[in-house]
């Protein structure tokens, strides 16, 4: 039971990762693909923060009388990753808008058809 509770976080993170991965490789809609990438990304964030968590630890803000803090370094990495992630999402969505203008569709198989008929 302790083993299950101790590893539950990691397993759910893997489930989320695989849901995102499946969305990216199996769904044809480009907006949905980007949402899949985002789900994958959030699962990686959760993995890092899970590894940095110390049970009974406080949030890493120096306070009088607190001895045990959670690990602040994963938090720093993930803060950067969240902001960069939004920048890449914005870029991906801009590309989707351009693809829609050039091809008239954002479904992957229809885009392939357009390419073959050219």
């Amino acid at each position: 039971m302790d083993f299950i509770i101790g590893h539950y976080n990691y397993w759910i993170v893997i489930v989320l990762m695989m849901v995102g991965f499946y969305t990216v490789i199996n769904r044809g809609n480009l907006v949905k693909k980007i949402i899949g990438l985002n789900i994958f990304q959030v699962s990686v964030f959760l993995l890092y923060i899970s590894i940095g968590t110390v049970s009974g630890g406080a949030a890493p803000i120096a306070t009088e009388g607190v001895e045990l803090y959670s690990n602040p370094l994963p938090h720093v990495l993930i803060l950067t990753a969240i902001v960069v992630g939004v920048a890449t999402t914005a870029l991906g969505l801009a590309l989707v808008v351009r693809i829609k203008e050039a091809y008239g569709t954002i479904e992957e198989d229809e885009i392939h058809k357009c390419d073959h008929t050219l």
Partner: peptide
């Protein structure tokens, strides 16, 4: 993230994500 003591990450994710 709040549950896992990562307050800064939590409000960045809530605002940005």
């Amino acid at each position: 993230f709040v549950v896992m003591d990562a307050a800064d990450v939590a409000f960045t994710e809530a605002a940005v994500g």
